[in-house]
């Protein structure tokens, strides 16, 4: 029993290995035995963990479970005032979602954004990382800082700034494009240009983050691979295709997954720049969920939407991981 009070492996290992080996199952039940300092270890671990685990349990796990339950009810503004107005409606919310044209529109827009902005972001990040990783470049830290600043700035504030950058008459984007002979575009007012405009802004805002991860990935590629390729007279493209890309594959999958998860949650950009318009062409799933839940108080329906979003993200993550395994 006294042995059991010594629970630290390292300490006992140093003192006497046999003591640990002789632990009997019965001894395990006496952990709380008072005595030397060591015996406080088990309660101490729980003391250290309690605030975090309690918070996560009460304010994360319970809400997840509650959202699941709510998604099978008609929780609305009447239920908000009295629970007696709450009814279990089984799968009706989910059925309604799939029959709702606005949901399909939001789904289409969100996929347009993810499939558009995701690969472009990653390609720009990789390009920037490769440029900055070149041995010829001086002042790397400064250029890296330039590209990185949009990442740390407040999304809502830059969305406000870009709303004016996209101004059809006075915006700096149309001004710059005029030098290339491009006629003014009503970026946020034209239904066909609104989503590309949001994609452009998202790429600008985010590419610096993945760039950092790619730089680290590039630096971990052994130099001799490139030297060997150079001896064989390989040019830039073959080196990129048969060394850089395969060696970066794990990094790319990781970057792809985190980028995609973030992009599926598109909200602030359209909320600030277009309010989902014009003609709902930039309405995202999260904005649709927000409007249904917190503007119209259709909370049951909104909770169901949240789960649909979760399932989409989950499925997309699995697909990417599977693709990665197949290419290995």
């Amino acid at each position: 029993m006294a042995f059991e009070e010594i629970t630290s492996k390292k300490y006992t290992a140093g003192l006497n290995n046999k003591l640990m080996e002789n632990r009997t199952p019965e001894a395990k039940n006496t952990r709380k035995a008072p005595g030397r300092t060591f015996s406080f270890k088990l309660p101490a671990a729980y003391f250290f963990l309690a605030p975090a685990l309690l918070t996560i349990f009460v304010f994360f796990f319970i809400p997840v479970a509650a959202a699941f339950i709510i998604s099978f009810t008609d929780f609305d503004i009447y239920a908000l005032s009295s629970f007696s107005n709450l009814r279990f409606i089984a799968l009706k919310n989910y059925v309604r979602i799939f029959g709702e044209p606005l949901f399909w529109k939001a789904l289409e827009n969100t996929f347009y954004f993810v499939i558009g902005a995701g690969p472009i972001s990653i390609a720009v990040s990789l390009g920037a990382a490769m440029l900055l990783n070149s041995k010829l470049v001086r002042l790397k830290g400064l250029f890296r800082l330039f590209y990185f600043i949009p990442v740390v700035t407040t999304l809502v504030a830059v969305a406000v700034v870009w709303r004016f950058i996209y101004h059809p008459r006075f915006g700096i984007l149309n001004y710059l494009l005029a030098f290339l002979g491009v006629n003014p575009i009503d970026w946020l007012g034209d239904p066909n240009w609104a989503m590309p405009a949001i994609i452009l802004m998202a790429v600008w805002k985010n590419f610096g983050y993945n760039m950092i991860i790619f730089i680290a990935g590039l630096q971990s590629i052994p130099e001799y691979l490139y030297e060997a390729a150079m001896l064989e007279g390989a040019g830039w493209w073959p080196k990129f295709k048969s060394i850089t890309l395969p060696m970066l594959a794990p990094t790319t999958v990781f970057v792809g997954i985190i980028t995609m998860i973030g992009y599926f949650q598109l909200f602030a950009e359209p909320y600030v720049m277009t309010q989902g318009g014009p003609l709902n062409r930039t309405l995202s799933i999260v904005q649709y969920m927000y409007e249904e839940g917190f503007r119209w108080w259709n909370m049951g329906y909104s909770a169901a939407l949240a789960f649909v979003l979760f399932l989409i993200i989950f499925a997309a993550t699995l697909i990417q991981l599977k693709l990665q395994k197949e290419t290995e």
């Binding site: 996560i56 809400p63 997840v64 959202a67 599926f264 949650q265 949240a306 789960f307």
Partner: peptide, 24 residues
């Protein structure tokens, strides 16, 4: 077990919890 449960629950997007959290 607890640690792995926490890690795997990171896949759940925060939007899922927002409605019940608001009500709570």
């Amino acid at each position: 077990k607890i640690f792995n449960l926490l890690l795997s629950s990171m896949i759940i997007p925060s939007q899922v919890t927002m409605l019940p959290l608001f009500l709570m």
